[in-house]
Simulated assay, not measured.
Amino acid sequence: MPGNKPHEAFNAFTTPLVDALECVTTHPRMEFSAGGSSILDQKHNLLLVGRQLKNDGYLRLGRSPFELRARLKYMLIKDDRENYGPLRVTTCGYDYSIRTTDGAAVLDYHWHPTGLSHEKRPHVHIGSAQLRSDAVLSSKRHVYTGRVTFEAVVRELIELGVEPMSKDWGDLLDMCETPHLLHRSWHHDYESETGRNAPPD
């Protein structure tokens, strides 16, 4: 999301994330690595948390049987393109995890283009809570997704049965997601997402 100053770009990026989280919990906030909102061209971690955060980093979602952990990697960059800058926060990776309150994995959305894993493309793991012992898939299988927005994960939670905090949650999530979709530049990351060279423009 664009901004004229570092804090403007950072707030444009994080405000919709917190607003989206408010669709399923009260008083969410963000924790980010030191200096993360102002240092250019350096990766930082962003954790979305709330009042009901547990020691293991999972957020209880009201009286629902589900918990959520959300971690993003981001970078503040310069962008000279019209309507994209002069400064912009870009997502460099994410880890969204939905599990039951007894600790069983439901869905894990991952995108880690750098790191130890051989799989660099965006994918989801279907948790063991959703698989029979004789299932064709395992919880280790990478099911490719393309990039998944945080708002899409919140929608999934509500569709799984988490009670939304407001009746117009669908409109609110659309409003939160729209700025991200308008300013994304995912085509620049084609190679890291697909493992193939980018096609010519």
Rank of each mutant, 00 (worst) to 15 (best):
D108V: 12
E67I: 07
L53N: 03
E159P: 00
Y144T: 13
D56P: 05
R141W: 10
A152V: 11
Y96F: 15
S37G: 13
I98H: 01
F32A: 03
S185G: 07
T149N: 07
A104V: 11
Q42H: 14
V154G: 03
P122M: 06
T100E: 09
E151S: 15
M75I: 11
H7K: 09
G146R: 09
A104L: 13
L53V: 12
P164N: 05
A20F: 06
R99M: 07
L53S: 13
Q52A: 15
A152E: 15
T15H: 09
P2H: 08
H118K: 12
I98W: 02
H188V: 01
H188N: 13
N197R: 07
S97K: 01
P65M: 11
E67V: 13
E67R: 10
F13A: 11
M1F: 06
M1R: 07
Y58F: 15
S117K: 04
R99S: 04
G85W: 01
D102I: 11
S166A: 13
T25E: 15
V148R: 12
F66M: 05
S133E: 11
H110K: 13
Y96A: 03
I77P: 06
N4F: 11
H112P: 02
V124L: 12
D168F: 03
N4G: 15
Y144V: 12
L76V: 09
N11T: 13
D95G: 02
H142K: 07
Y96D: 07
H112N: 12
D95H: 10
L116D: 12
D102F: 05
A12D: 11
N55E: 14
V136A: 14
T178S: 09
E163I: 11
N55P: 08
H123Y: 08
G195N: 04
D189E: 13
R51L: 10
V106F: 00
P113Q: 08
D95K: 05
W169R: 00
D80Q: 12
L181W: 00
R88I: 08
D79Q: 09
G62T: 05
A9K: 04
L48T: 10
Y94G: 00
L48G: 11
A135G: 09
E8V: 10
S97I: 03
M165N: 08
V24A: 06
E119P: 00
T15V: 14
R196Y: 10
G93A: 01
V49H: 02
L160T: 00
P65G: 14
L46C: 04
R132E: 07
L131W: 07
G146T: 04
A105T: 00
T25W: 02
A152T: 15
L160M: 13
L46T: 02
G85E: 03
F32C: 02
S128D: 14
D108A: 04
L173H: 05
D189R: 01
L48R: 06
D41G: 13
K78L: 05
D41P: 06
I126M: 09
P16F: 08
I39F: 03
C176D: 06
P65R: 10
E191M: 08
L61K: 09
A135S: 15
V124Y: 01
R51V: 14
R147F: 04
K54M: 05
S97C: 07
E191R: 10
V153K: 00
D201S: 02
